[in-house]
Structure formats: C-alpha cells, structure tokens
Design a protein around this nucleic acid. Structure first.
Lengths: 206, 206
DNA sequence: TTATATTTTGAACACTGTTCAATATATTTG
DNA sequence: CAAATATATTGAACAGTGTTCAAAATATAA
C-alpha cells in the first residue's frame, strides 16, 4: 500500500467516524423533536440522548440550529413517504390532489414539533448551505407535481391556472396549520378537518 | 364621608395605581416588541424599560406570557386603525377588499415581532381569559365585514361563497406571511407583494 | 515506550423565567 | 408626631438555556 492509498484510508476512516457521530446527534435530535417537540430540544438533552457531553456537539456542528435544520431533509423524506404510501392507489387528478394535501397536513398534525421546525423556527444566518427554505417550500409542490401535470395534460387546467392554485394551496395549508397548531383555530380536530376539506375543495373547483 | 364611600375611595385609588403600573409594563413590552421583536422580550428587558425590578413584574402579572398576550388587544386596535385609515376612501367591494388585505399584511411586514406574537408564539394555558385566539383570528374578518356584506347585497356573491372566500383569505394571508417572514419565501419583498397580489386577485375572482 | 495528534469533557459565562424572604415605602393607629 | 401595621419593591437564588475554552482522556505516530 503506497502513501497516497494510506492517506486516503486514513481520511476515509476519519470521514466515516465523523459521519457516524454526526448521525448519533441527528438521530437524537429527531427523536426528541418527534416525541417532545421543538421546545424540549436543547443542547444538553440532545447530547444526553446521543451519549456524549453537550460540549462534544460543538465539534461536529457549528451551533444547535445547524444541527436542528439538518433534520429537515430526513423529515421531508419521511413526509413524502407518508403521503405517497397513502395516496398512490388513488386515481390521478383532483381526487388525488385533495388526498395528497390532506395527508400532508395530517403528517404535521401528528408531529407538531416538525411543523414548528419547518415553518416557525427562525433560520439562523443567511447561508443555509443547500437552502433549507427551498427544501421546505418545495415539498408540497413536489408531492402534487404529477397530478398537476395530469390535469394540464387532460386540458382541465391551463399551466397558469395550475400555478395560481399551487400557490394558493401552499399558502392556505400553511396558514390553516399555523392557526390550528398555534391558536387552536378551529377549536377541534373535527372542525379543522372540515375547514381543510372545504378549503381544498373550493381551491380545486373550476 | 361614610365608611362605604371611604372604602370605595381606597379601592379606587389602589385600582388606579395598579392599572397605572400595569400600563408601564405593557407599554414597555409593546415598545420592545415593535422595535426589537419577540426574541428580545425578556422579563429583565421589560422591567428595565418600565423602570422597575424584574421581580416587581410578578406582582402585577402571573407570568411573562400573560403580560405579552395583553399587548394583543392594543396591537389589534392599532392594526385596525392602520388598515382603515389607508382604505376608507376606496370604493366598496372587491377593490377595497384587496386593499384591506394588502394593508393588513403590510402592517405585519412592518412589525414582524407583532406577527410572531399573533401567530407563532404558543399560548400558555387553556384559559386565556377573553380568548386572545379569537381576538387574533377575527381581526381580518372584522376589517372586511362591511365589504363582504356589500358584495352580498349587490348580488355579486352568495353568503356561502363569501364564507369560503373569507376563510381562504385568512388562511392564505397567514401562510404567505409565515413563509415570507420565517422562510424568506418568496426571496424579496417585491416578489412577496407580487405573490400576495396574485393570490388575493385569484381568490376574489368569480 | 515515548511523543504527538485528536477527541471528549466539565467549568465558566451570559443569558432565560420564576420564587421568596428581606427591605423599603406608605398607611393606619395610639 | 411617633409607633405599629400593611403594602410595594427588590435582589439573591435556582434551574434552565446556548456557547467557548482550556484541561483531561484517548488514539495514533515515531
């Protein structure tokens, strides 16, 4: 084994170990977020769960927000799978669009801490690497993409109309979830579901 | 002066003084919220600005959330006046509805801390006295009420259609503001205004 | 085994909200 | 007016937050 191979092995080993430890912290953060919500996510809680000292966290992440926002990617994927598994059997078009948006909301109702992370927690600095913001706002569009295309192909909608409806449904679902999770409006889950259904129906109509 | 009158005078004086001090704390909190946002609202910051010790605050409010949510009423009134003064000269109907909703959003863009207080900050307990939540969610409806009624009277809308549009505009504006203030989506204020205009137009149409 | 590099860690600092006993002030009574 | 009482104000203390840094533990190199 020559020197270059040797150095590569070393770097690989370091890289692998670093990713492993990072993973422990990320898993701990995700568990905490799902079970106890964003408010109980603290440096010391995370480190305890990961089996390290709180100071160790700062050798792998620049601050706690950096770590917390790294969870977005995994939750985004989880939400995508949650929605897809529940809607792939439905006939394409308006019917499936409605089911997708309802399942999307259902996911956040189930994990309010993830909603807080996605939509309420302030981003730290401007950087944000792969732009977490775009990752969040593009999720619903991505879930609905095939069905919007289907509607456009079937001449049920123009591309322009679809664009307007896409935006309205993103804003509306974000707002409805914000109001329900933070302001208890509407007052009960039944009332929320009713409002959500009415809203989606009215947006998909015509 | 008899005993009853005397006791009343005492109680009045106490009441007046108590309301005065409460007012100092509320004013300090409002100033802090408007200038530096919700994150800089702390017990010690408020008390410093009010000219008291942080411990004094707890003689007048049960906790800091109680105090912070007392500001909602004043800000609600301020927002109402902000919107009304900018839209009362406009001809009733769709045109004014659009202006009202835009001015409403403009107010929160101007004071992001007030938006956080209204829509992001978690309510403490279930009680909430005069239900702060309803105070918040009813504001836009109240601002638009006269114009919805006008549209219904003019046979431009049914009452049922107006109800759907009302809800969609509340959810949509809340969501759009949430995304713009917390996620920088869209990326610039110009793009935000464009999206807001398109959204409102599409909701008011037909 | 010794020397060097790396990782892990607790102490410390400046914050947060909240409670409580001590102090300062105002009011009532003798 | 002076003494006794009631009320208001306050800082110390506690448990929590995020973050930094130098010391200690561990792993790697010579």
């Amino acid at each position: 084994m020559n020197t270059v191979q040797y150095i590569c092995t070393i770097m690989n080993k370091k890289e692998i170990q670093e990713q492993r430890v990072k993973g422990y912290f990320i898993t701990a953060t995700k568990d905490l977020l799902k079970s106890d919500g964003l408010k109980s996510v603290s440096v010391r809680n995370i480190a305890d769960r990961a089996g390290y000292s709180f100071a160790t966290l700062y050798n792998y992440f620049k601050d706690v927000k950096d770590l917390v926002f790294l969870c977005v990617k995994d939750f985004r994927e989880e939400c995508r799978e949650y929605v897809e598994s529940r809607t792939m059997a439905i006939t394409p078009g308006n019917k499936r669009l409605k089911a997708i948006i309802l399942a999307y909301m259902e996911y956040f109702i189930q994990y309010p801490g993830i909603f807080d992370l996605f939509f309420a927690e302030k981003l730290s600095d401007i950087s944000g690497k792969g732009d977490t913001s775009a990752l969040i706002t593009s999720l619903l569009d991505e879930l609905c993409a095939a069905d919007w295309d289907y509607c456009i192909d079937m001449r049920m909608l123009t591309s322009r109309e679809a664009g307007l409806k896409k935006a309205a449904l993103l804003y509306g679902s974000t707002g409805l979830l914000t109001l329900y999770l933070n302001r208890r409006h509407p007052g009960s889950y039944d009332a929320f579901l009713k409002q959500a259904t009415h809203f989606i129906d009215s947006q998909l109509k015509s």
